[in-house]
Amino acid sequence: MAVIALKEYSAVPRDLVANFNGKQLVYASWDHHLLFAAPFLFCVPPQMTFSEWVAGPLTQLIAADPDAKAVDWSSVQWLKANQPWTPNFAGSLAENGVVHKDQIRFRTPGLNSLLTVN
């Protein structure tokens, strides 16, 4: 049973994409860069291109990390939903299959000023 209840019970999810006025949520996280305590939450239009998202909000938020300036976006390793993934920078988030509440991660091996990576 999907919930322990007296009778059949179903619910409406609280955070459906329809509630975000044409935008969607995207989460992003820079592996092994924990100056940022948790993955970032972005509320962005699905028409935004991947490169706009990277060059804009993402770059802005990671700036406080001493490794930020050294990130070479063309050689970054990407994961989506914890699976290796290759984004098309020119395509929109929607065209890249980035759905509502997708978690994007990126890795920059060798860059780890603040954290000893085992």
Partner: peptide, 29 residues
């Protein structure tokens, strides 16, 4: 100041600040 808002856990509702069991360098996704 981290003006990026945080991803929250659907169950405990804390920001997802905790790391992988056995690897304190990687957020647990």
């Amino acid at each position: 100041k981290n003006y990026g808002l945080a991803k929250l856990c659907q169950t405990c509702q804390l920001p997802c600040v905790f790391t992988e069991p056995g690897d304190p360098t990687l957020i647990c996704h």
